[in-house]
Design a protein around this nucleic acid. Sequence first.
DNA 1: ATACAGTTTAACCAAATAGTTAAACCAAAG
DNA 2: CTTTGGTTTAACTATTTGGTTAAACTGTAT
Lengths: 205, 205
Amino acid sequence: MVDELNKDQSTEQKILTAAKAVFIEQGLAGARMQDIADKAGINKALLHYYFRNKEKLFDMVFAEAAAKFMPRISMLFEADVPLFDKIRLFVDNYMNLLTENPFIPIFVLNEVHKNPEEVIMKIWGGRMPPINEFAAQIHREVAAGTIKPIKPIHLMLNMISMCIFPFVGRPIITTVFNLGEHGFNAMIEERKQQVADFVIDALRP
Amino acid sequence: MVDELNKDQSTEQKILTAAKAVFIEQGLAGARMQDIADKAGINKALLHYYFRNKEKLFDMVFAEAAAKFMPRISMLFEADVPLFDKIRLFVDNYMNLLTENPFIPIFVLNEVHKNPEEVIMKIWGGRMPPINEFAAQIHREVAAGTIKPIKPIHLMLNMISMCIFPFVGRPIITTVFNLGEHGFNAMIEERKQQVADFVIDALRP
DNA sequence: ATACAGTTTAACCAAATAGTTAAACCAAAG
DNA sequence: CTTTGGTTTAACTATTTGGTTAAACTGTAT
């Protein structure tokens, strides 16, 4: 017999993949169920046969997209390694994650912007990412004079900003700096080293 | 007589203001003409009496929003001042601009993301912002050994990222760092100094 | 053979929404 | 007073779109 699970998953997966692409490109309001069906190579009826409605489908896609960015950060933030190592580890990991999912950030940020309370609840069911340990570590280093004085929030924001923003502003950046797709990728590749160095240089007393 | 121009402008302006608010909050696809009419305190008929259709109205709002961020940057980038001064000048000016228009970036970035070619054309009619002079200046300083080696593109991206991202990610940031509106504003205020210091510290050899 | 899950086809409904129209209203200008 | 431009009202059209339905088809398992 044909593997039932695989058959189910294969169609369900085709839908999810298509939905992800369309939602990420067009957002919840801009996405059309017909487009999703088309991109999945099926028809609307079957689409609704698998997913009752747009909201449900969106939630699946969104939850997966948003979730993907949280766990890895948490682990890094809580890891027990020296600060500078942690910075390099974070930048490298995070930029790799972004390279693999370049459009998730603008998608998530935009949906959150349109509907903050509700959408933020969808991301974390009330649980916040554990930044306290990392903040404490920064604070200790500052107190010990190992790094220049800086509030943890600013250091974290600086790191995250420099990692994410190039992806969020990608089309504008490629235009302004006259980069092709290849040029952009090369720039991002350089940046993994660059950003970590930049942050560490800024912190060294 | 009642000032005709003012009367016209007052209604037209009410519409544009309302449209700006709704478009920025909901995006092109998510915005409803009825909402715009409501927020402007008029009715749909009059709305279409002033602006033929949604696209036209959107273009006006978008063009204004996007344009607001380009001119000031250009002037700063071309100004004839030492690099470190220019960095402070840029960060301070840009963050002030952002404080006054906190939602423009996510709005513009998102619309560009959904429709890169066309929307980018709407922003600059083919003219690019003049980054060359600034890039050359950075390059000279690096060559002279006045600052640590860094590619101009990375320095520029670093600065812009750290300025813009907090606004783009505002709702998530306020949640994760548990800031109220006041806390967020205070953080931004600190940041004007912080970011400039951070960049300069990173560059100093 | 038949039963059944997955799938297609094609038509359809209901709601939302962009945009139109015509008639009436109103206040100010001449 | 009359005209006129901005404005409202309210109904209407056309289109898009999310979602439904029923019938027929297909392959596979039993």
